[in-house]
């Protein structure tokens, strides 16, 4: 697919890299000469100019682009770019700068298909790091809904249970299960849960802590470290 990214800052450039790594074509629009140069050095195709201006966006051939990510720190630029891109039939993604604006843009910005607030995922990552090594955020589904991967430890209350015996809160669903050192798969009722196995759960924020307690227990940081050390040779 072909993508246009507005802004070669922290968020834009990283997004461009991830898309390129997955084999997509990426064109970046950046108005700051130094940032544009840095993106060019990174072997990206860069159009230098203000992404809020139609004359600049004309140069990136939006007609052949599948989607545009307006990922600058300037909300006015991001919104203008999305409006132009929508006119060309692109899918549009807008970065917001303050979390309360998420609902406003979801509701009122008809030219914007998706709203992203990068700080939210960053905060979840930091929180997981603080909690310890046995829980990891995979995706943010909605403001109050998250997919997390939990690793079963020696202290897990459910160690030795099967998937069908698991009892998790109503606002949570088990999405995938992976035996230690194997890839994640659809969970089967008879799968037995052992140390080092991973469970991906979709959960409401309110029950996330309960899910963690049920699946990995109140394992100390030390226990989590020990697990990591044991798995270290793989």
């Amino acid at each position: 697919m072909r993508f246009v990214i507005i802004g070669a800052g922290r968020v834009g450039l990283r997004t461009a890299r991830v898309l390129r790594e997955e084999g997509h074509d990426v064109t970046i629009v950046e108005r700051d000469a130094n940032k544009a140069e840095r993106a060019r050095n990174d072997e990206f195709e860069v159009v230098e100019g203000d992404g809020a201006r139609e004359a600049v966006l004309d140069k990136v051939d939006l007609e052949s682009a599948d989607a545009l990510g307006a990922l600058t720190g300037d909300l006015n630029v991001n919104f203008a770019a999305c409006m132009v891109a929508k006119h060309f039939g692109c899918r549009t993604v807008l970065r917001i700068d303050e979390d309360y604006r998420e609902d406003i843009y979801r509701k009122f910005a008809s030219d914007v298909d998706e709203v992203v607030y990068p700080e939210r995922l960053g905060a979840i990552g930091a929180k997981n790091a603080l909690l310890g090594g046995n829980i990891r955020a995979i995706a943010d589904i909605a403001q109050n809904l998250q997919v997390v991967e939990l690793t079963i430890t020696d202290e897990s209350p459910v160690k030795g249970y099967s998937i069908s015996e698991l009892s998790i809160p109503a606002d949570a669903r088990i999405l995938a299960f992976g035996k230690r050192d194997e890839s994640m798969d659809i969970p089967l009722p008879d799968d037995s849960i052992g140390v080092g196995d991973r469970v991906a759960v979709l959960a409401d924020f309110d029950v996330l802590e309960d899910v963690r307690r049920i699946l990995v227990g109140d394992a100390s940081r030390g226990a989590a470290d020990e697990l990591t050390a044991n798995a270290g040779g793989n």
Binding site: D74, L75, N76, F79, D97, R101, I104, Y105, F108, A109
Partner: peptide, 8 residues
Amino acid sequence: HIVAGDVD
């Protein structure tokens, strides 16, 4: 009016 940009 509710507007897009740095004011709401």
